[in-house]
C-alpha cells in the first residue's frame, strides 16, 4: 500500500522522570519511525507507561524532552488530529455509553459527529454503541479505546498494552489493524510487557528495563539470535579451529554432536571450520527463542540455551 499520510517521527531526548524518590525513567533517547509498528517493550514497572505519559504531556519530564514531529504534545495545534493515544489506567465513565464517550471527544476536538459511527464500525463496536460502558468486557473497552484514538484519523498512534484483554481472534484482528495503519505511513507505537504478544506485529523494538534503554533495533536484528549451532564429529578440532580464529569456545548444545558457539554470525564460524579443515555436518543460527533473548536483555543475564546439559555430552566417535 502506498503511504497516505506524511510520516511523523516520535523522539525522546535524554528523557528522565524522577517521582518523589523513584527514578522511573532515566536518560531515554529513542527514535520511533513512521511507516512501521514499533514495539515498546519491557517488564511491568520498567517505565513504559510513564514514558508514554510524558510523550503525551500528562506527566512533566524531570529532564529531557519528548516530541511528536519535533513538537511537544501540549504545543500541537490540533492534538487529536495528530496523535491518537490509548493509555492503560485510563478508563471511561461506567454510566456513559460507548457512543456518547466518543461524541464527547469528537465535540471537544471539533471533529464531525459522523466520525463517531465510523470509528465504532471500524472497531466492531456498532452493536454495543448505545450500551453503558459499565457493561463492557475488557476487550470491548480496548476496542473503545482504539476507536477513540482513531477519531481524528491521526498519523501517529500510541497504544499502551492494547492486546490486554483481547481474545486470540481480537489479537489477530488488532495485528491486521496495526499493520494496515503502518502500511499507510503512520507511526505506530505499541507497548507490551510480553514480546510474544506483539512479535508478529512489530517491525522495530525499543526495549527498556528499570527505566533505561536496553536495546532499540529492528526485530529482525534481535531475531538473528545470540549463537551459532555447529554439528561436527570432531569437537576438539573445532574448538582448536575456533580458538585459532579468535572465536569463543563451543559448549554442548543439547543434541548429540551439536555444539553451541556464542557468535552471532554463522559465516565466521563456518569460515574458521573450513580453513582448519574441520568436518561440519550442520551449521545454523539459533533463532527460535526470541522470548529468551528478550528476557536476557531485560534481566541483564545471558540467554539460557535450550536444554543445556550440565555435563559435556560424550563425544561421538
Amino acid at each position: 500500500m502506498m503511504p497516505v499520510v506524511d510520516g511523523i517521527e516520535i523522539t525522546t531526548e535524554g528523557l528522565t522522570k524522577v517521582f518523589a524518590r523513584v527514578r522511573a525513567v532515566t536518560d531515554l533517547t529513542v527514535r520511533v519511525r513512521p511507516g512501521r509498528v514499533t514495539g515498546f517493550l519491557g517488564p511491568n514497572g520498567a517505565g513504559k507507561t510513564t514514558t508514554l505519559r510524558m510523550l503525551l504531556g500528562l506527566v512533566a519530564p524531570t529532564q529531557g524532552r519528548a516530541l511528536v514531529g519535533g513538537v511537544a504534545y501540549a504545543d500541537l495545534p490540533d492534538p487529536t488530529r495528530t496523535v491518537g493515544a490509548s493509555l492503560e489506567a485510563t478508563s471511561f465513565h461506567p454510566g456513559r455509553s460507548g457512543r456518547n464517550h466518543l461524541r464527547v471527544v469528537a465535540l471537544a476536538a471539533g471533529l464531525p459527529e459522523g466520525r463517531v459511527d465510523e470509528c465504532l464500525e471500524l472497531t466492531g463496536l456498532s452493536g454495543a454503541a448505545h450500551q453503558r460502558v459499565g457493561g463492557y468486557s475488557l476487550g470491548m473497552r480496548q476496542r473503545l479505546g482504539l476507536a477513540t484514538t482513531m477519531l481524528g484519523d491521526p498519523p501517529v498512534l500510541i497504544l499502551d498494552e492494547p492486546a490486554n484483554g483481547l481474545d486470540p481472534q481480537g489479537i489477530a484482528w488488532l495485528r491486521g489493524f496495526l499493520r494496515h495503519l503502518a502500511a499507510s505511513g503512520r507511526t505506530v507505537l505499541v507497548s507490551s510487557h510480553v514480546l510474544a504478544e506483539v512479535e508478529q506485529t512489530v517491525d522495530d523494538v525499543v526495549i527498556i528495563a528499570d527505566g533505561r534503554l536496553v536495546r532499540a533495533a529492528p526485530l529482525a536484528e534481535l531475531r538473528r539470535g545470540a549463537a551459532t549451532i555447529v554439528r561436527t564429529p570432531t569437537p576438539e578440532r573445532l574448538a582448536d579451529a575456533l580458538a585459532g580464529a579468535g572465536l569463543p569456545r563451543p559448549t554442548p548444545a543439547g543434541t548429540p554432536g551439536a555444539w553451541r558457539v556464542p557468535e552471532v554470525l554463522p559465516e565466521r564460524v563456518g569460515h574458521a571450520a573450513y580453513a582448519a579443515g574441520v568436518e561440519v555436518h550442520e551449521l545454523y543460527t539459533e533463532t527460535d527463542d526470541l522470548e529468551a533473548v528478550f528476557l536476557s536483555l531485560v534481566t541483564g543475564a545471558s540467554p539460557p540455551a535450550p536444554l543445556v546439559p550440565t555435563d559435556p555430552a560424550p563425544v561421538q566417535p
Partner: peptide
C-alpha cells in the same frame, strides 16, 4: 472529581492539553 475517579481525565487532557 468524577474525571479522576473514573480515570477519564487523561482523555480530557489528551484532547485539550492546555
Amino acid at each position: 472529581t468524577g474525571e479522576y475517579r473514573h480515570q477519564t481525565i487523561s482523555h480530557t487532557l489528551l484532547v485539550t492539553p492546555r
